[in-house]
Amino acid sequence: MIDKRAASAAEVVADIPDGSSIMVGGFGEAGSPVELIHALIDQGASNLTIISNNTGSGEVGLAALLKERRVTKVICSFPKTLNSTVFPELYREGFTELELVPQGTLAERIRAGGAGVPAFFTPTAVGTPLAEGKESREFHGREYVLEHGLTADYALIKGATADTHGNVLYNKTARNFAPIMATAADVTIVQAARVLEPGAIDPETIVTPGIFVDRVLEVADPVHESRLVAEGASYP
């Protein structure tokens, strides 16, 4: 019998070793798996590479993981937030390395990684500093730059509804990177507000099919990152 449900946040992140690469879903706070990130802070893994669009807000969630000095590299398109100084300080200090990737190239690298495509050519960033040193090639009279598929050891993502087979639905713009990250990680861990029995979700509506998901944790009432930041909260 397939049942990917786990009993606790501690359990789903327990085996993540030091030095792991981890994709973290979310665009700003929308889709950020804050409970899973906090469980990872408690768990203690360090020297992590984080692949995520942003670097978190305030001192909770992703920003808190960074602040605990657990992250030595981020692969990211927009590591600036108005209300967080955590990443800028670590970056300027030289503790956390940044690989800056255009947002669409980041998405396509993850999609390619998950689809078994090792590299692809894209017109994005041609003629800019972000294409420097990269192989380029002309197709149909236009220049393209070679980018590599991206995979990771783990993905932490936030869904709205899941089932015990790992099928996942999302809420509005909280979907963003989650479906592609689920395909590109060896172990994909999902937190969802509801975890249902198989058959409870219409197969026509499923966004992430369960084959891409390894562990499912029900977090019935997830926190809103912006609310925590407004309260001045910090984690742990």
Partner: peptide
């Protein structure tokens, strides 16, 4: 702090 977002994709 360099940050690019989706601008390079949009113009391309």
């Amino acid at each position: 702090i360099p940050a690019v977002g989706g601008a390079m994709d949009l113009v391309a």
